[in-house]
Amino acid sequence: MITGNKGEWSEIYALFKLLGDRELHPGDNEINKIQNIVYPILKILRTEINGNFEYSIEDNIVVISGNEVIFRIPITEFKIKAQYLLSEIKTNQGTFALPEIEDFMKSINCLSLKASSSAKTDITIVIHDQRTGLQPSLGFSIKSQLGSPSTLLNASEATNFVYKIVGDSFSEADAEYVNSLYVKRGTKLMRDIKGRTKAIYERNGKLEFVKTQKQIFSNNLILIDSLLPQILASVLLQFTSSNQSNTEDLVKRAEEQNPLNFDTTDKHLFYSYKIKRFLTDSALGMMASKVWTGQYDATGGYLIVKTTGDIVCYHIYNKNEFENYLLSNTKFETASSSKHHFGEVYEKNGQLYFNLNLQIRFKS
């Protein structure tokens, strides 16, 4: 029996829905369809454990071919199954099975919820671009709003940023006070990261960025932009020192404050441009603890399954829309400080330090 959570079942829903609709719409930065741009779908490619399959659309029939096996299924079947599956995803919780959908999946040689792929591509779609006349094959990772929001950049010790505490009057007693600040969440006591950051400044301390905890992450960032470690360190500190968490709001604040003293005479949006590049590379393959070569995975974008069941796409094929979507729909958040070892004043070689952690998640 096949079981999965809302996000996993959303991958099958996307397959059914797109074959039923026979077209794909790009989205704007508010995740709304751009109505005047339509990409007719020619075929969808999916890798299964028993081979590669093509779902080709011919009039009102989906022709499924692979390993010399051919099925012909009416478009209406996919429409009906997509509607039923959407309803079930919305009403179920946790991990669940859907026998009726599983039977239909087997009938079209779809044997698992997640496509068998070593890359991040969940689904590959061949479209007809009416603007260029081309028929590109576009790889997508599927992100569903039907389940819990996923992370764009996962927290780890590699995403820790190291700051030194400067200020002659900041004492060991001040450090002990900062480390005594906790906040209760449910039944657990957690380090009060924002409260501790605030307390450092209230006791005449100041945080100055030194480096990322892991050099590999620093080098990945420098590959994207030579000043990206300092830019992210500044934005991360702004997040920790304020009530703002939306990436777009934090970047706007950075543009206003200009902590790196860029020449803004001609109103260049340095921070927005550089953070967009970082978000795009994070979305398409860059991970903090692995060497980043700048080579995107087979996927080049995201399909968003909205709470309404509509699907919109963002792809590097349409770079501006993709970047604007990432900037507008992500937020900074505080991960587990005990797990990733940050948020505590510590001493090394006579100098006091304080680490902050970077994690970025999609907004709900």
Rank of each mutant, 00 (worst) to 15 (best):
L260H: 09
G294A: 12
S234G: 09
T212H: 05
N220W: 02
A283S: 13
K198C: 00
T280I: 14
T247G: 01
L223Q: 13
A283I: 08
G285P: 10
N243C: 06
A199E: 14
T330C: 10
I311S: 08
K267L: 14
P229D: 04
Y325P: 00
L269K: 14
I311N: 08
S242K: 07
I222R: 10
I200T: 08
Y201H: 11
T240L: 06
S241A: 07
L228Q: 04
D225S: 12
Q257A: 14
G309A: 11
N261Q: 12
Y302S: 05
H268G: 14
L236M: 11
D281V: 07
A199S: 09
S242T: 12
Y314I: 03
E255L: 10
L327E: 06
V235I: 15
E208I: 01
K267W: 11
L223H: 09
L223P: 02
K306I: 01
K267V: 10
N220T: 01
T197V: 15
N318A: 11
N320D: 08
L228R: 08
F270N: 13
A283D: 03
S234M: 08
S218F: 00
S245V: 02
L221P: 02
S226E: 13
T308V: 13
N246S: 10
K267N: 09
Q230T: 06
K319F: 12
I311F: 12
K198S: 14
N204W: 07
I216R: 04
D249Y: 01
S328I: 00
K276G: 05
F239L: 07
D297H: 07
Q244R: 11
V305L: 08
Q244T: 00
N320A: 03
F332S: 00
A254R: 00
G205A: 10
F217Q: 01
A233M: 02
I311E: 03
E208L: 05
Q244D: 14
E202S: 07
I216Y: 04
Q257V: 13
Y201W: 11
T264M: 12
G294V: 13
P229Y: 01
Y273T: 12
R203S: 10
L237V: 04
